[in-house]
C-alpha cells in the first residue's frame, strides 16, 4: 500500500543542519493498523507528514498504491491527498469559523460533487461517529472528544483508503481517548481502512497490528 524507500529528511537553517529522518525504509500493507512510537523529536510526525504528502523528503521515494509521488505537481498531490488520505491531528485542527457539518464536508468541497450529495455523505459519517445531533454546533461548543470525532468524520468522509493519525488521543482524557480508539479500530476492522498512527501510548500501540519504533530519526524496531 505505502512503500518508503531510503527516506531522509534534513532541516537546514543558516547555522545548523538537523537530520530528522535517516534512511527510513518501510512498507505498510493494505488494511494494516500500524503504530509508530518513539520519544519526542525522534521524527515520528515528520515521517507521518511525509507519508501523508504534506511534506517532501530530502531524498528517498514514496510509493502509494504503486504510484510514485516523487514527481507529482501541486495539483496532483492535492488530488491524491484528497482521494487517498484522511488526516486526524492531535489538536483536531477544525476550522473554528465553520460549524461541525461544514468542517466535515471540507474534503468534499475539493471534489466535483453536488452540495446535496456532499451534505448527505457528511451526515452519514457524523452518524457513524455518533455526532449527528451536533451537526450545526460550532467547534468551540464541543468537548475535546467530540472535536476529535468530528476530525475523524472529516478524515473518512471522502472514503480514503489511508488514515494518518498523529497522536489522536494526545489531547484527550482516557475515557475520550478510548472512544476515539474504538472508532479507529472499527474503521480498520469493519471497513478495512489502512491506519497509521503516531502514539506515545504503549497500551494503544499494543492493540494495533504492528508497531515500529523510532529513535533519533532512525527506525530501531
Amino acid at each position: 500500500m505505502i512503500t518508503l524507500t531510503g527516506i531522509n529528511k534534513i532541516y537546514r537553517t543558516r547555522e545548523i543542519e538537523t537530520q530528522a529522518l535517516e534512511n527510513v525504509n518501510l512498507e505498510v500493507n493494505k488494511g494494516e493498523f500500524l503504530s509508530i512510537m518513539g520519544p519526542s523529536g525522534c521524527g515520528k510526525s515528520t515521517l507521518l507528514n511525509i507519508m501523508g504528502l504534506l511534506d517532501t523528503p530530502t531524498n528517498g521515494t514514496i510509493t502509494i498504491n504503486g504510484t510514485s509521488t516523487e514527481k507529482m505537481k501541486d495539483r496532483t498531490l492535492a488530488e491524491f491527498r484528497n482521494r487517498m488520505i484522511g488526516f486526524v491531528f492531535q489538536s483536531f485542527h477544525l476550522i473554528n469559523s465553520l460549524n461541525v457539518i461544514d468542517n466535515v464536508e471540507l474534503p468534499l468541497t475539493y471534489r466535483k460533487i453536488s452540495a446535496k450529495e456532499s451534505r448527505h455523505l457528511a451526515e452519514e459519517v457524523l452518524q457513524k461517529v455518533g455526532l449527528s445531533h451536533r451537526m450545526h454546533h460550532m467547534p468551540s461548543e464541543l468537548s475535546g472528544g467530540q472535536c476529535q470525532r468530528v476530525a475523524i468524520a472529516r478524515a473518512i468522509v471522502g472514503d480514503p483508503e489511508i488514515i494518518l493519525a498523529d497522536e489522536p488521543t494526545g489531547n484527550l482524557d482516557s475515557k475520550m481517548g478510548t472512544e476515539v480508539m474504538d472508532i479507529l479500530h472499527r474503521l480498520n476492522k469493519e471497513e478495512g481502512r489502512t491506519i497509521i498512527m503516531v502514539t506515545h501510548n504503549e497500551e494503544q500501540a499494543k492493540q494495533t497490528s504492528r508497531t515500529i519504533r523510532f529513535f533519533d530519526g532512525r527506525q530501531v524496531e
Binding site: 495539483r75 492535492a78 488530488e79 491527498r81 484528497n82 485542527h93 475539493y110 472529516r154 471522502g158
Partner: peptide
C-alpha cells in the same frame, strides 16, 4: 494560518 494548512492537507491546491 492553521486553516490554510488544514485546507491544503484535505485537498486544496495552491491556486484554489
Amino acid at each position: 494560518i492553521a486553516e490554510i494548512g488544514i485546507r491544503r492537507a484535505f485537498g486544496s491546491t495552491r491556486s484554489k
